[in-house]
Design a binder for these strands. Structure first.
Length: 440
RNA sequence: CGGGGCGUAGUAUACCGGUAGUACGUCUGGUUUGGGACCAGAUAGACCGAGUUCGAUUCUCGGCGCCCCGACCA
């Protein structure tokens, strides 16, 4: 007997999950979370209300959330989008420790100055910090491997839990005390090289937000810089759930953070007038210069054999905040509306029982067929009425809803509805895969 | 950290100085099946501590927790 790996036959419709860590299908009766009709009383933020109601997340305490199977799928999708874009700009993925030696933070002075730093002691009274950011780890690490200009430039990134003792966490998953961040650090021989890389990072970030469905609402925003550049840049996504006010120029698609509006009252690109709007900071990039390389003596030998400080940049995106912002920005009165690339599944299959078991049998066939073709599908196989299933599908927010019922079969196929627009059409069985392809 | 609000079944809520009612959920049985069905039965609850009181879930104080506004946010 000869078995040929199925993968060789799979046509990539763009429906497929790219990593191999996630199952591609799930029956809703086996999904251990359930939806809720009522929003939790202790959440006001729309993102938290919807994500909890739909079973994506669970609150452990103020500012700390667990991600349930559905939520983790979204998080992993976002992670994969970011990973692909970071790899495109030569980022090398690594995974740094969360437990940090106290001395590192003393070396930069931030043991005392960074008030959100979690500090802890072990049973022998030795002190540590929980990673709030990772300059204190990556810089000494880089120092061990960088010695020549030939070792530069170099960029490394990770997806890592960050711990910050926010005095007041708020806005659901948008400002937590523990959260996952992608942080990228770049190392350069010169300011010019950093500047060039920085521009590539800007482009990569814009692609990330575009792919996560927030391209239209996200603005490259000028913010207060630091010692090594006039400005730093934030990526601000327009939403009332945000904490910042930005002043935007719609012709240039850039904005100025209110904190520097006094010194930069006009568009930095065209000099035009700006209009204020509320926004959430979904990304931040920063030219660090030599601040951390100086603290840890990170140097390299240039072509003349002269020792020079390494120039650094750092680039962050909070995954949870991005996810929460997507919910805030894209949801409607019925529930969440996920953009295609970060949706937990691509298709929500809804079977509606009739007098006979015909529809269920048909739905089983469709489910198996979608699995066979690698389409990510959640099947609502519950013994529930249509209205409840529709309401839950709207709440969960998977981009495409596929209804298999006696009625649809009698009409000649299945009903395919787009969550975002509510537009639906009848699709004959023979056209199903092809239609799905043209809908994503 | 300053100010304000709130803690009652799994969830959302109501009433009350005399130990708690409703809805949803869940479980059992039945009828249903295209926009959160119906009937019958069942399940399950006062954040913690102290005080006042004959008696506290209710009033007072303290603690803890959660939310909001502000401050803060490499």
């Amino acid at each position: 007997m000869c078995t040929i790996p199925r993968a060789t036959y799979i046509v990539n419709f763009g429906l497929f999950e790219k990593g191999r860590t996630m199952s591609k299908n799930m029956k809703q009766t086996q999904l251990f979370t359930k939806t809720r009709k009522d929003a939790p009383a202790d959440e006001v933020a729309k993102n938290a209300q919807l994500l909890i109601r739909a079973g994506y997340i669970h609150k452990e305490m103020a500012g700390v959330y667990s991600y349930l199977p559905l939520g983790l799928r979204v998080l992993k999708k976002i992670e994969q989008v970011i990973r692909e874009e970071m790899n495109k700009i030569n980022g090398q993925e690594l995974f740094l420790s969360s437990l940090h030696p106290k001395e590192r933070w003393e070396a930069t002075g931030r043991w005392d100055s960074l008030d959100v730093l979690f500090k802890l002691k072990d049973t022998l009274d030795r002190e540590y910090a929980l990673g709030a950011t990772h300059e204190e780890i990556i810089t000494p690490l880089a120092q061990e491997y960088i010695s020549s200009y030939r070792d530069l430039p170099f960029a490394a990134y990770q997806f890592q839990n960050k711990f910050r003792a926010e005095v007041r966490s708020k806005s659901g998953i948008m400002r937590g005390r523990e959260f996952i961040m992608k942080d990228l650090y770049s190392f350069h021989v010169s300011q010019e090289d950093l500047d060039q890389y920085y521009e590539r990072a800007v482009a990569a970030y814009l692609r990330v937000f575009e792919r996560c469905g927030l391209g239209a609402q996200t603005y490259l925003t000028y913010a207060s810089g630091g010692t090594f550049s006039k400005y730093s840049h934030e990526f601000q996504t327009l939403t009332d759930a945000g904490e910042d006010i930005i002043h935007l120029c719609d012709t240039c698609k850039v904005a100025v953070n209110e904190e520097i509006i006094a010194e930069q009252p006009a568009c930095p690109k065209c000099g035009g007038a700006l209009t204020p709007q509320k926004a959430a900071e979904t990304g931040n990039i920063f030219k660090l210069g030599t601040k951390y390389s100086a603290a840890f003596n990170l140097t390299f030998k240039d072509a003349e054999g002269k020792e020079q400080p390494v120039i650094m940049g750092c680039y962050g995106i909070g995954l949870g905040r991005l996810m929460g912002t997507a919910v805030e920005v894209l949801s409607d009165t019925k529930g969440i509306v996920w953009p295609r690339e970060i949706a937990p599944f691509k298709v929500h299959l809804i079977s509606i029982a009739g007098k006979s078991d015909e529809a269920i049998k048909e739905a089983t066939r469709v489910y198996d067929d979608l699995i066979e073709h690698g389409v990510e599908v959640l099947w609502d196989d519950r013994d529930a009425r249509a209205g409840e299933k529709f309401a839950d599908a709207d709440l969960i927010g998977i981009p495409l809803r596929l209804v298999v019922s006696e009625r649809s079969i009698a009409e000649g196929g299945y009903e395919l509805t787009e969550r975002k627009t509510g537009q639906s059409k009848l699709v004959p069985e023979s056209m199903l895969l092809q239609t799905l392809k043209s809908n994503v």
